[in-house]
Nucleic acid binder design. Structure first.
Ligand SMILES: [Mn+2]
Ligand SMILES: [Mn+2]
Ligand SMILES: [Zn+2]
Ligand SMILES: [Zn+2]
Lengths: 135, 135
DNA sequence: TCTTTTATGAGAATTATTCTCTTTTAAGAA
DNA sequence: TTCTTAAAAGAGAATAATTCTCATAAAAGA
């Protein structure tokens, strides 16, 4: 898609088939691991080197095209949703869902406007909301 | 120490030198990785198998003696502070500090008492506060 | 002290990620 | 278009983090 190409060139990145596939994969899979992305790309398209995927993901994070998200597993996941949001983490399995709540963000902003944390300058607050998804 | 032994037996765990060392290490090091714990124990005391450390850490988490904490590295850290709290994550290095704020917790509890997340039952909310530590 | 269950150790295996080095390719210049 | 060149990708080895397997050791209650 033209928009994928645009996203790359906006960030001053060379357009390569690998980068386009990886970005498409991230947009198609919810909070994927590097391995999820590799499997997704290899289904249809050509082979891709795992090192390339890790390197490209790193570049994308650096350029702000995607974000890293943390879980209590030793694997890094990636997020294509760039606007500020939080995550619902299943306490039973590996499911993660986006949680967008501007009202909450407003409350937090107000709270930390008043209550300064001494010796620390806040850049971003992310909630990890752990719980159970019903059915 | 007697209290370390007590903590183990309270949870119905057999008291072993390895488990005592690991628990002492966790109490001595801030948010350690498994490897931090292994190095700490090996300084003074005897050797310990890495597999033992991972297995014991897992047991401790299961029994609620410690908690896992997540960072944006592919390594798991552990936390000995069991009362509900949040974390300040340095955006520059790997430093993590506990952040305890009951007033904030109260605000969050109230907020989510009203605002239900549909299809999801909250168990715990943890804030990852990313920013810079001054000097 | 004996018995049984559970834990530990050693080391191999697996998984996730990074690195090195060679070859390929995107993209601007000519 | 073709040429040039910096940047990217590929292959595969290396490293890091964690898990597994199975033989031995040792807690803890009988
Ligand atoms: Mn790793
Ligand atoms: Mn791993
Ligand atoms: Zn998300
Ligand atoms: Zn903590």
């Amino acid at each position: 898609m033209i928009s994928i190409k645009n996203k790359l060139s906006e960030k001053g990145l060379k357009i390569t088939p690998q980068r386009m596939s990886i970005l498409e994969a991230i947009y198609s899979i919810s909070h994927p691991t590097a391995d999820d992305i590799i499997k997704f790309i290899r289904q249809e398209h050509s082979n891709i080197a795992t090192g390339t995927v890790y390197k490209v993901l790193d570049t994308f994070v650096q350029k702000g095209l995607i974000k890293k998200i943390t879980t209590d597993k030793d694997v890094i996941r990636y997020d294509s949703l760039l606007t500020h949001h939080h995550h619902l983490h299943s306490s039973e399995d590996v499911l993660i869902k986006d949680y967008i709540d501007e009202e909450l963000d407003e409350i937090l902003n107000e709270y930390f406007q008043k209550k300064k944390i001494n010796g620390f300058k806040i850049e971003e607050i992310t909630l990890q909301i752990k719980g159970k998804f019903n059915e």
